[in-house]
Design a protein around this nucleic acid. Structure first.
Lengths: 229, 229
DNA sequence: CGAATAGTGTCTTTAAGACACTATTGA
DNA sequence: TCAATAGTGTCTTAAAGACACTATTCG
């Protein structure tokens, strides 16, 4: 069936834009390319989709293979877009389906079998440097999507550990949006939004200052009204 | 290079969700499939991407080929998402990149070389019936995207003729959202949003009632604050 | 104690929604 | 004339933003 090939054959890959918060920076997961083309450059993790594999499954598999991140249930994963310029890969005609993921600060990524080295780097540094292929475009699109999604969904919680404080959640917004937010108004706003967070009853003391209540993510997925940028 | 095929070969297609407003209904462009599989069923227009062709270019080409719509400048076209379930096409492994388009009420579509017949049908009827492949899913996703986009962009104007009244614009919102909107508040809201529409100075009388001013699309692309559903 | 952070109360401003009212047309 | 649609004014309510104030901790 594939032998008489009545259609032009394309290579299909998935690439991942994985964001997390580390050291007061919004960071993106990158690998150092070990092979030509773009050998030695930073790139987004990714790889070929298997011939019998779903796209989202391929994204999760590549993430686990290249980085050791396999806690899929603690990760938000969504399709970002598809990049298919005829000249994007000099070797062959390649279509890349990009996925966007939000992760809590996990253990250090472990360079897997495929990748020379997987590492978190600050998004602004990644965008300032040279990324392989069209990955700078994909990253910029992912950043804009992430910024927009925080406005009208509860996905900011997927950047947090299972239990978090309102201040933790605020830091997510501040780092992703690169702004400052009034802590008092933010606190009221989050509490007033039904289903965004639910209190555990516990408190935690983080150095100096009054201890803060701990929360878990609530049942809501969308915010009415949104948190405006 | 393609001969030693170090990657699994995929067929890549584009499918189009093209919306317009006709006869007080939100309509989607469909074709009647002339070949197996799903012969005789309704489907979204689309086809194979050429090996040296950009994805968006392929979408515009397929639209012109199958329907005769070639006024690309009077059309909003954006990528919707990519559908790649291994079982979506029984013939081969196919990845479909779906595009979403908004069109003003154009001339009747002309069935092109590929399609048995291209026709506009009401979106709710299309969703109620059986569409080929996973096109019902794609259409539902396109509808939800269109609904969301009207909230925070000025794209409602791309459903209108070059000159339109505020009531025309309101009908777009009402039909896409399947709601009714207070004409008076809507009028004030649109006028208050800088760059959404600009007056031509002309008026037009549509049957009975006071004649309405004519407007063109303004320079703004995004709405602050949004028009809330 | 003071510095720092958590959390509440309250005022001002902005914008949405309800709806009375005027304006201008065709039948 | 009336019915219908365009467009304005105004009141009420919801929610954002500014910011004073209290609460609780560490050094």
């Amino acid at each position: 069936m594939l032998a008489d090939m009545a259609f032009p054959p394309f290579a299909v890959t998935v690439d991942l834009v994985v964001f997390t918060i580390r050291n007061d920076d919004l960071c993106v997961l990158t690998i150092r390319r070990g092979e030509a083309p773009h050998k030695g450059k930073l790139a987004l993790p990714g790889g070929f989709v298997h011939i019998d594999e779903d796209l989202a499954t391929a994204a999760a598999r590549e993430l686990a293979e290249e980085t050791g991140i396999d806690q899929i249930e603690r990760l938000h994963l969504e399709q970002l877009g598809t990049y298919g310029s005829p000249k994007r890969d000099p070797r062959m005609r390649t279509i890349s389906v990009a996925y966007l993921a939000f992760a809590a600060d996990l253990d250090d990524p472990v360079a897997g079998s495929d990748a020379a080295a997987a590492q978190w780097i600050a998004v602004d540094r990644a965008l300032a440097g040279k990324l392989a292929f069209d990955h700078a475009t994909i990253l910029a699109d992912g950043l804009e999507r992430a910024r927009a999604k925080l406005e009208y969904t509860t996905l900011a919680t997927s950047f947090c550990a299972p239990e978090f404080t309102i201040a933790d959640l605020r830091h997510v917004y501040e780092l992703v949006w690169d702004t400052t937010i009034d802590p008092r108004n933010f606190h009221r706003k989050i509490q007033a939004t039904a289903g965004f967070v639910k209190a555990t009853g516990e408190v935690v003391s983080a150095g100096r200052g009054r201890p803060a209540q701990l929360f878990r993510a609530g049942a809501a997925t969308h915010l009415h009204p949104p948190v405006v940028r």
